[in-house]
Amino acid sequence: MAESITAQRTKGWDKPEQLDLSKADWQSGSQGAGDVQIAFVEGFIAMRNADAPGSPSLIFNPAEWRAFVLNARNGAFDLT
């Protein structure tokens, strides 16, 4: 039997060791012409490189995602 998401979590780490992204509904804010895609899976947010969908994905919990989005909106990641 598959281990539950809660059981897969490592102590002190609030994300699963494995998150099944095989059936994720990947979305792009640039109608498919952008660099990144996101998917909402089992309460987490996954982000991947649209040009290399087989590469590792970044996994955010909701609080991390909110912080990322707010900082991006405020220009924290703008190139100078």
Rank of each mutant, 00 (worst) to 15 (best):
residue 7 A to W: 00
residue 27 Q to P: 00
residue 36 V to I: 12
residue 57 S to L: 01
residue 69 V to R: 04
residue 71 N to Y: 01
residue 56 P to L: 01
residue 40 F to K: 12
residue 13 W to N: 07
residue 35 D to R: 15
residue 36 V to C: 10
residue 53 P to D: 04
residue 14 D to E: 10
residue 61 N to K: 13
residue 63 A to W: 04
residue 31 Q to A: 04
residue 69 V to E: 06
residue 30 S to L: 03
residue 54 G to V: 05
residue 69 V to I: 13
residue 68 F to N: 07
residue 54 G to D: 14
residue 10 T to L: 14
residue 64 E to H: 06
residue 10 T to V: 15
residue 34 G to P: 00
residue 60 F to C: 12
residue 56 P to T: 02
residue 28 S to W: 00
residue 11 K to A: 15
residue 52 A to M: 11
residue 73 R to S: 14
residue 54 G to E: 15
residue 72 A to E: 11
residue 19 L to F: 09
residue 57 S to E: 06
residue 16 P to I: 12
residue 6 T to Y: 04
residue 37 Q to C: 06
residue 7 A to H: 03
residue 2 A to P: 15
residue 67 A to D: 14
residue 30 S to K: 02
residue 52 A to I: 00
residue 33 A to P: 02
residue 45 I to H: 08
residue 76 A to Y: 03
residue 52 A to V: 12
residue 10 T to S: 14
residue 15 K to Q: 08
residue 41 V to D: 04
residue 6 T to G: 07
residue 34 G to Y: 00
residue 40 F to L: 14
residue 16 P to M: 04
residue 14 D to M: 10
residue 67 A to P: 03
residue 74 N to I: 00
residue 22 S to E: 08
residue 15 K to E: 11
residue 67 A to F: 13
residue 32 G to R: 02
residue 41 V to P: 07
residue 39 A to G: 05
residue 33 A to W: 02
residue 28 S to L: 02
residue 18 Q to W: 04
residue 46 A to W: 00
residue 62 P to E: 06
residue 5 I to A: 09
residue 1 M to N: 06
residue 58 L to M: 01
residue 77 F to C: 09
residue 2 A to Q: 15
residue 10 T to R: 13
residue 71 N to K: 09
residue 27 Q to V: 02
residue 80 T to L: 08
residue 78 D to C: 13
residue 66 R to Y: 06
residue 75 G to R: 03
residue 78 D to I: 11
residue 44 F to D: 09
residue 4 S to W: 12
residue 53 P to Y: 03
residue 58 L to A: 00
residue 61 N to D: 15
residue 79 L to P: 03
residue 49 N to Q: 10
residue 25 D to Q: 08
residue 14 D to S: 06
residue 39 A to Q: 07
residue 32 G to K: 04
residue 47 M to N: 00
residue 65 W to A: 15
residue 69 V to N: 03
residue 75 G to P: 01
residue 20 D to R: 04
residue 47 M to L: 12
residue 68 F to A: 12
residue 19 L to N: 09
residue 68 F to I: 12
residue 21 L to F: 11
residue 60 F to D: 09
residue 50 A to G: 03
residue 48 R to V: 02
residue 74 N to Y: 01
residue 53 P to T: 03
residue 66 R to P: 00
residue 48 R to T: 04
residue 79 L to T: 14
residue 20 D to Q: 05
residue 3 E to I: 15
residue 11 K to N: 11
residue 41 V to S: 05
residue 47 M to T: 07
residue 73 R to Y: 09
residue 49 N to C: 10
residue 63 A to I: 05
residue 55 S to G: 15
